[in-house]
Amino acid sequence: MAPYTFELFAPYNKQAGLRLKNANARMFGLDIPMKLNEQDGYWRVTLDLADGIYHYQYKIVTKSWFEPEPEPALPDYTNDETKTFEENQENRKNHYEEHEKLVQEVKERNKKREEEITFTEVWYTFVDPYATEVDERGSDDAFRSVGILVFKNGKKIIDEYEWKYDNHVPLASNDKLIIYEIHIGDFQDKFTNVTAKMDYFVELGITAVEIMPIKEFPGTIGWGYTPRYYLAVENAYGTTAELKEMIDAFHKHGIRVIMDGVYNHCDVSAPYAAIDHDYWFHHEPKDRVYCWGPEWNYGRYDEKYQVWPARKYISDSIRYFISEFHTDGIEFYFNKKSFITYDV
């Protein structure tokens, strides 16, 4: 057994708790209260853990003023083959109208809550924004997802992969890059399958690959441009060790690995959006037509805790992917205005 501290930065929320269980257990036990340190804004609880794999979630009294609008924005409607074209058109129209009515009801409730000075306390269950592995448990429902903690020899580990080809051959300089962009899901579906195709990349004569977003996003199929967890790898593509093996194989052949970073916005179900929306994000999108989700507010500075919260979180994510996965570059994709500082 060894002590491990769970911590969550949520300085202005009233209450917080931890849900923890062994990965083999079916259900969580009683919630474990966390204590706020007023000096640094972190909720913490320290527990003695045995080596093993754990599932965990946090619970908090939300400070966000909204409830998510029903998804999808334009619901699909499947034609009934037993009905005429006109009947199906009428049913489709009614279906859309019912959905729009529901959306408007949610908007009205949000508007009312936003105007109120106080509102009923709502507990929100979510995965740690700093989780390095997430299991969606067969659903894209954020409330069912769990963070995964692997504890070995008295400390948290990511995996046990040992790098083989760091500095094996020189990598191309920035002015010599021939970049091939790939989407893991569309190209070969898994990190391991990409690794198996390494001869293909070598024959192309490229000097770098750009990997489209691989941070954990809702569901298992997507472009990755609505990230939900910024330190977790999309597990539909494989494990962290398999990602490292793929990057190692590219480095073996002198091919640099650049990763797409999505730092303008996140998925609406990302943890911070429901923890304290306006602390982390702009109150509303700057462009409603081309809004992909809550937009990070890099201009917000917390005078009390002397921190730029959004800048720190995204910078921590960048540092993690560079140090843990030996990434050779980050593309700042779809950014209207960022304030990222990282001293490589």
Rank of each mutant, 00 (worst) to 15 (best):
S64G: 02
F66L: 05
E67Q: 09
E69I: 13
P70E: 02
P70R: 00
E71P: 01
E71N: 03
P72C: 15
A73G: 09
P75G: 06
Y77P: 07
N79C: 12
D80F: 11
E81W: 04
T82I: 09
K83V: 02
F85Y: 05
E86F: 05
E87M: 04
Q89F: 09
E90V: 08
E90A: 13
N91I: 13
N91P: 12
R92N: 04
R92P: 00
R92I: 00
K93C: 07
N94S: 14
H95C: 07
Y96I: 14
H99F: 13
E100F: 15
E100D: 15
E100S: 14
E100G: 11
K101Y: 14
K101S: 14
L102N: 08
V103D: 06
N110S: 01
K111V: 01
K112I: 07
K112S: 06
K112R: 08
R113E: 07
R113S: 07
E115V: 00
E116W: 00
T120V: 04
T120S: 02
W123P: 00
T125E: 09
F126V: 04
F126L: 11
V127I: 12
D128A: 06
D128C: 05
P129S: 10
P129M: 09
P129W: 08
Y130C: 02
A131G: 08
A131K: 05
A131L: 11
T132N: 12
V134G: 08
D135Y: 05
E136V: 03
G138P: 10
S139F: 02
S139E: 09
R144S: 10
S145N: 14
G147I: 04
I148S: 04
L149V: 11
L149P: 07
V150M: 05
F151N: 02
K152Q: 12
G154V: 11
G154R: 09
I158Y: 13
D159R: 09
D159A: 08
D159V: 11
E160T: 04
E160V: 01
Y165K: 05
Y165T: 04
D166E: 12
N167Q: 13
A172N: 05
I178C: 03
E181Y: 00
E181N: 08
I184A: 03
I184V: 15
I184Q: 01
G185E: 02
